[in-house]
């Protein structure tokens, strides 16, 4: 019974989450759950609060109220908006991988050092153990031959794949992607999506903020459409994208040429 219940418990739970920046209410009572191994795509117009929601999930941004749980780590922000102590925060974040739109690789470190940084500094792993881990992750993202290169010598797609490997090196329970392909030249988008697709297939729990609607339809189990800080519509990926119930969702999706149609199935 106990095993049964932990297996069915969602991996990520966000409840009654609120966040404001000054006068601007960016998140208004957000509720969201992600099953273990689930992939949720977060879509919506620019400024709707997607990034802020993602950042609240790993507490890069302190919510003003509500509850955030990832795996066994749970924080109740009540109405205080007080962040937990730095140590607790760091431990929480170590368990959630985050991939940024602009990669944010460490430019003063080689590719290998970038990927080893988390294990070495945060997990205090000996180098003899961190290096094979990092190298295996570079193999996984198809960049084994770039281990000794510096980030400024890589293409955008390669940078983002290194950033994914760097996040994976912490062996996190969940991965958060904030517009991971938005800064890329179109011809480089595919290689990054391929890595994300493989990760999803392996059973990684993922939340993906994306404007790649076709990709969301193909890879995500569920799609959440946000506008003005509220979840307008949520449901199975294909249902939301192909037959949205809400007018706002329809209006938003109509901006995209329905590249989703090209994907079979």
């Amino acid at each position: 019974m106990a095993i049964e219940s932990t297996m069915t418990e969602p991996k990520i739970e966000v409840a009654a989450l609120r966040k404001r920046f000054g006068d601007l209410e960016v998140l208004k009572d957000i509720n969201l759950t992600v099953e273990a191994g689930g992939v949720v795509a977060l879509i919506g117009p620019s400024g709707s609060g997607k990034s802020t929601l993602l950042r609240c999930m790993n507490l890069l941004v302190a919510p003003d109220g509500g509850r955030v749980r990832v795996g066994a780590d749970s924080f109740d922000f009540g109405n205080s908006g007080q962040l937990p102590p730095a140590k607790t925060l760091a431990r929480f974040r170590a368990n959630t991988g985050m991939v940024f739109q602009h990669f944010n690789l460490f430019p003063h470190m080689s590719v290998l050092a970038n990927v080893m940084e988390g294990p070495l500094t945060v997990r205090r792993m000996p180098k003899a153990q961190a290096e094979p881990l990092a190298r295996s992750l570079l193999v996984k993202v198809g960049l084994a031959d770039k281990a000794d290169a510096y980030p400024n010598k890589l293409s955008g797609g390669q940078k983002q794949r290194v950033a994914i490997a760097r996040a994976l090196a912490m062996e996190p329970e969940v991965m958060l992607f904030d517009e991971a392909t938005s800064a890329l030249d179109p011809e480089l988008v595919g290689e990054v999506l391929q890595v994300m697709r493989a990760l999803a297939a392996e059973g990684m729990t993922m939340v993906i903020v994306t404007h790649e609607i076709a990709f969301a339809r193909e890879v995500a189990d569920r799609v959440v459409f946000m506008r003005d800080g509220v979840v307008v519509e949520e449901g199975p990926a294909r249902a939301v994208i192909d037959t949205p119930r809400e007018e706002a969702t329809r209006a938003f999706l109509s901006h995209f040429h329905r590249r989703g149609e090209a994907v079979p199935g």
Binding site: A90, A94, F100, N104, T121, V122
Partner: peptide
């Protein structure tokens, strides 16, 4: 973004 990347890995502010 550099600070955020470090924090996202789970580093302490001093790290």
């Amino acid at each position: 973004g550099q600070t955020e990347a470090g924090e996202a890995l789970g580093m302490l502010p001093s790290q």
